[in-house]
């Protein structure tokens, strides 16, 4: 039970990181980007690729299974993921956004997700990959509870990123513009702000968060081209549960989804774990469609 709780919080914090990026782009760019989860996969694999280059220089830094090379690899992955997001926006979403219904953009995001996943499969192959072959020894915290140092790191990093992002959104001009864009794009333009620039930064931040959560996912589980696809439902459940556009909401939503997934194993066969987020989502939509904390933009029509 205790172990399941700890595992749930870990999974939840990874889901939360991905869901923050999703909720930001969904709130600010005003469409559900089904390709967001593939940015997570892309980020994870770009770090794997970069690690092949940087990893030769240094070994892990105990007690973690990774060291500085993975940190550098993550930075490279962030850059490459942001680049991919901007490229996709430039080639697909922006041309569609200007002259069609926004559901066409959602449709296209599905097509893009398939393409990104297949390109990863093509480059890296379909079998599982790991950042490190180091075996990590779990530390016994108390009877019935063991944690991996990597997992503690993951949780800490998630918290740090959430606080940083909150400060960014509250204290900077760009953050303010992003929040304003979520409410009324025309009024942002009237205020003399180039919304295209704000949109680009939103992509960069969303993609950076996706890349980091991809690396953390790869660090604590394993890498497969399908990880993004499997995270899609938990991410959406977390984002909608927390209220679209609400950063803290996404974190709480992510933790709830992670915990529910992890605790569900105690009640239903593990094979159904992936369906748990769907039922949470369905329950939220029936009961509180604006999420538990309310959305930045109304959920109801």
């Amino acid at each position: 039970m205790l172990q399941a709780l700890a595992d749930g919080i870990l999974t939840g914090s990874i889901i939360a990181l991905g869901a923050i990026g999703l909720t930001l782009t969904m709130g600010i760019l005003r469409f559900a980007n089904f390709a967001h989860a593939e940015l997570i996969t892309w980020g994870a694999y770009m770090a794997l690729g970069a690690l092949a280059i940087t990893g030769t220089f240094a070994g892990p830094t105990p007690p973690f299974s990774f060291g500085l090379p993975l940190v550098f690899a993550t930075l490279i992955a962030v850059v490459l993921t942001a680049a991919l997001a901007l490229l996709i926006d430039h080639l697909v979403f922006r041309p569609l956004r200007s002259h069609t219904s926004h559901m066409t953009v959602v449709f296209a995001s599905f097509g893009v997700s398939l393409l990104v996943r297949m390109v990863i499969l093509l480059i890296f192959g379909g079998s599982a990959a790991y950042y490190s072959n180091e075996l990590q020894i779990a530390i016994r915290v108390m009877p019935g509870l063991r944690v991996m140092p990597d997992h503690v790191f993951t949780l800490g990093l998630t918290l740090a990123i959430v606080v940083a992002l909150h400060l960014f959104l509250q204290k900077t001009r760009l953050g303010l513009s992003m929040r304003a864009l979520a409410e009324n794009p025309d009024l942002v333009r009237i205020n003399g702000i180039d919304t295209r620039v704000v949109v680009r930064w939103t992509w960069v931040i969303g993609a950076a968060l996706a890349a980091v959560s991809g690396v953390l996912y790869g660090l604590t589980v394993q890498l497969r081209p399908e990880i993004g696809f499997q995270l899609l439902l938990p991410l959406f459940a977390a984002a909608i549960l927390g209220g679209v556009g609400n950063v803290f909401g996404a974190v709480i939503g992510g933790l709830i989804v992670g915990l529910a997934e992890s605790l569900s194993v105690l009640f239903v066969p593990a094979g159904y774990k992936m369906a748990v987020p769907f039922f949470i989502l369905l329950a939220v939509l029936y009961v509180r469609p604006n999420g538990i904390f309310g959305a930045l933009r109304g959920g109801a029509k």
Partner: peptide, 28 residues
């Protein structure tokens, strides 16, 4: 019933979810 009064995306997400659930039931 859950989604058609709400934002259009919610139907997309829910239908995606039901397909995953059906697949799991099929497998398990």
């Amino acid at each position: 019933l859950a989604t058609l009064r709400l934002r259009e995306e919610y139907l997309a997400i829910s239908t995606f979810g039901i397909a995953i659930s059906i697949q799991l039931i099929g497998l398990n």
